[in-house]
């Protein structure tokens, strides 16, 4: 299980990587492992305005359906459209090729209360136990 330390994590198992004003969002390695084979990803529309905590998309495995919530507020600037054809990318590379949306953040302070890699790893270990 990987926990890169250049990103922030939510309790709902999303991650966010901030590059300037842009927040790149996906689901964590733990989340994809729990879901199993991902067969469908529903993406939001570019231009959609999201508040922190909004469910903006859905990731489905063969057996289950999981909402994806936005870790930050902002406007959707780009979606990872290749996931429509190749949703398994989320399983294979959740932190890079498997990103889901990019947002233009409205408040950079939104990430302040998110978990660090260390905190998230501890959180997941507790959830598994």
């Amino acid at each position: 299980m990987e926990f890169p330390d250049d990103i922030k994590y939510t309790k709902e198992h999303e991650w966010v990587r901030v590059e300037g004003k842009t927040a790149i969002v996906g689901i964590t390695d733990y989340a994809q492992d729990q879901l199993g084979d991902i067969v469908y990803v529903e993406l939001p529309d570019v231009g959609e305005i999201l508040s922190k905590g909004d469910a903006f998309g859905v990731v489905e495995s063969v057996k289950s359906v999981s909402d994806v919530n936005s870790p930050v507020s902002g406007k959707v600037t780009e979606t990872n459209d290749p996931l429509k054809e190749n949703p398994e990318t989320v399983n294979e590379d959740p932190y890079n090729e498997g990103w889901i949306v990019k947002l233009e953040m409205s408040d950079k302070a939104d990430i302040d209360d998110l978990m660090s890699a260390k905190e998230y790893e501890a959180y997941v270990t507790e959830e598994k136990a």
């Binding site: 199993g36 084979d37 495995s61 063969v62």
Partner: peptide
Amino acid sequence: PVIYAGVIA
């Protein structure tokens, strides 16, 4: 058991 290696495989 619901899954061993993965449902699709």
